[in-house]
């Protein structure tokens, strides 16, 4: 009987409900429900003064946003800029642009300070919100912000927003004789030189790029070669393979690059001859010895 009832309930609910998951408890919701609306919905009890906000701001905010909200480096400017929205470089701040105070409380609470989000108490958020309003000349220095007066404060640009009217700027599908005049930009992006281009070797003529890289790596190799290798490898002393002797270097190359490196670094005594460790120049770095090996191998293999 019990089994039968359970079965019936699950069938009835299966059309719209899968009965998966657990009901969210009031306590769980209270802990996670952090959003605040312009009408004050969601604001917790609490308060904070401009005065207490100033100390907190200087401790936790000023290093990025600047002492007066002017913004350090590329961090956001949060004060000033009123009346600049139609200018060539508008400054969009809490005072000049933001429509609602609730957004400020919500954002400080959910995401600030940048490296310690959700670390502030509710009263600290009220205090910081009050202080940022003060930096924007929206409240006096003795102002105290609360859950009750926050929704009553209006910001200068509240009416400055309107709903997306797109699509606008409509084009038509012309196929021939579509332009009466050409309006070519007077510069190309290349002229500005602000693009990170390190990876774009094809923007430099290929041969120049190759030469540059070879020159850089070869500088170390050639210096090392001249210092430690040339005496034997230029002449064949002690059975050394001569720079440029293709057949001799090909045979050595068959041992593998790592073997050649080890022989050059640690020394080698074979049937054909004797190679002192690092060419007898123990002060050389491993890197420079390997570069010299690469250099000789390339030279030895050249047509």
């Amino acid at each position: 009987m019990l089994l039968c009832t359970v079965f019936l309930i699950s069938v009835v609910h299966s059309e719209t409900r899968f009965n998966i998951g657990h009901s969210a408890t009031t306590e769980q919701i209270a802990g996670w429900d952090i959003d605040i609306r312009p009408d004050g919905f969601g604001l917790p009890e609490g308060s904070g003064s401009v005065e207490s906000g100033e100390m907190l701001y200087e401790e936790k905010c000023a290093s990025c946003h600047g002492v007066f909200g002017e913004g350090e480096d590329r961090w956001p400017v949060i004060a000033g800029g009123i009346g600049t929205l139609m200018e060539e470089k508008p400054e969009k701040t809490v005072g000049s642009y933001w429509p609602y105070v609730s957004t400020l409380w919500d954002y400080i609470h959910r995401a600030m300070p940048f490296l310690e989000p959700q670390s502030l108490t509710d009263n600290e958020v009220y205090a910081l919100t009050a202080y940022v309003l003060y930096l924007n000349d929206q409240v006096d220095e003795d102002f105290v912000l609360t859950k009750y007066n926050l929704p009553t404060i209006t910001l200068p640009n509240e009416k400055g927003f309107f709903i997306d009217p797109r699509p606008e700027a409509l084009n038509s599908r012309c196929m021939t004789n579509c332009l009466t005049t050409k309006q070519m930009s007077s510069w190309s992006a290349a002229d500005l030189g602000v693009t990170p281009l390190e990876h774009l070797s094809n923007l430099v003529p290929a041969t120049a790029q190759d030469d540059l890289e070879l020159r850089e790596t070869n500088t170390l190799a050639i210096e090392t070669y001249k210092k430690a290798c040339v005496i034997c490898h230029d002449t064949g002393v002690a059975g050394a393979p001569i720079f440029g002797d293709k057949e001799d270097w090909r045979q050595r190359a068959e041992k593998g690059l790592e073997v050649l490196y080890q022989n050059a670094l640690n020394g080698y005594l074979g049937e054909k001859g004797y190679m002192p460790a690092k060419g007898g120049n123990s002060g050389l770095t491993d890197e420079s010895v390997k570069a010299a090996v690469d250099h000789m191998l390339r030279g030895g293999l050249a047509d």
């Binding site: 508008p90 954002y107 400055g160 997306d164």
Partner: peptide, 25 residues
């Protein structure tokens, strides 16, 4: 909710100083 990412950011300032909001598409 008019949160930061739909008021301060991701709104489109027009030449007349007003801004488009909820420009989703």
């Amino acid at each position: 909710w008019h949160l930061r990412e739909e008021t301060s950011k991701y709104t489109d300032l027009m030449p007349d100083g007003r801004a488009r909001q909820f420009t989703w598409v």
